[in-house]
Amino acid sequence: MPEALQHIINEMTPWLSQYGYLLLFIAIAVEGFGIPAPGQSLLIVASLNSTTGDMSLALVITVAALAALTGNSVGYFLGRRFGHLLRDKGWIKPNLEAKLHNSIDRYGITALVISRFIEGLKQFMFIGCGLAEMPLKPFIIGNILATSLWVCLFGLGPVLIRNEIAPALAFYHQHEYSTWMIVSLQLSLLLLYCLHMRRKNR
């Protein structure tokens, strides 16, 4: 196991042992409304701990998914309802807001999905969806899709590839943007195809 990952495991395991699923839920949820937290690292460690019987993988996945869905939804409604206050207090910088608006207006659900996997952006994109007044239905679809992919990658992934996790993480961090651009493009094409077939069958 790589030294960096082993260090993260050593650092986080005592916290998970003491606070368990509650800590996992809080750390993941608060990221959805702008508070940086080690939610992703905790999810990886919790997933790996499940292989030794210290935690339940089913509960880890369930808690992580519920936390992400909840936190992202809170971020969306904060942005939609209190966006003006966030701007007035300077918590959302004008240049960041402009970038979020541009991404959401141009790419919609695709931007939302990609942001879930990019540190720094994932803490603000869901608030940005609210600020940009993204319609609720596309937000819900994007939120479910982003959460499902994220939980599968960082919740199930470490268990499935624990012996190959070092090169996998290295590849992901090296090609983070391009990887998710390709994945999101494929998912968007699949969604368009499904919509086309649905209209055709009416």
Rank of each mutant, 00 (worst) to 15 (best):
A168C: 02
I28V: 09
G108Y: 01
M55T: 02
E31T: 07
S103Y: 15
E164Q: 13
S17I: 15
I144E: 00
R87E: 12
C194L: 15
D54N: 14
Y19F: 15
K200T: 05
E119D: 12
F171C: 11
A168D: 06
N72R: 04
S184P: 02
I127D: 07
F82Y: 14
M181D: 04
I141S: 08
N102Y: 10
R116L: 12
M1Q: 06
H173P: 09
E133G: 09
A27V: 09
D54L: 13
S56Q: 14
E11Y: 14
K89A: 14
A64W: 03
F124G: 02
N201I: 00
G83Y: 12
S41A: 14
H196Q: 14
I144Q: 00
G39I: 01
F25N: 06
Y19N: 02
L153P: 02
M134L: 15
M55Q: 05
N201R: 10
Y76V: 10
G53W: 00
A46Q: 02
A98M: 10
S184F: 12
I61K: 10
L149E: 08
A58P: 08
L131H: 00
G71A: 07
T13R: 03
K99V: 03
Q123Y: 10
H7K: 14
M197Q: 12
I61R: 09
D105L: 03
F124Y: 15
H84V: 12
T13H: 11
E164S: 15
L59Y: 07
A170W: 13
G71C: 07
E119I: 15
H84N: 12
Q18D: 02
G157E: 08
L189G: 01
Y172R: 00
L169P: 06
F171Q: 11
G108F: 00
I9Q: 09
F117H: 00
I182P: 00
C129S: 05
V45E: 00
V159F: 04
A166Q: 08
A170S: 11
R80V: 14
P36K: 07
L5M: 14
G20Q: 05
S178H: 08
L96N: 13
F82N: 06
Y193L: 13
Y21V: 03
I140L: 15
G108V: 00
L16Q: 04
Q6I: 07
A29M: 05
S115G: 06
L195F: 11
L16I: 03
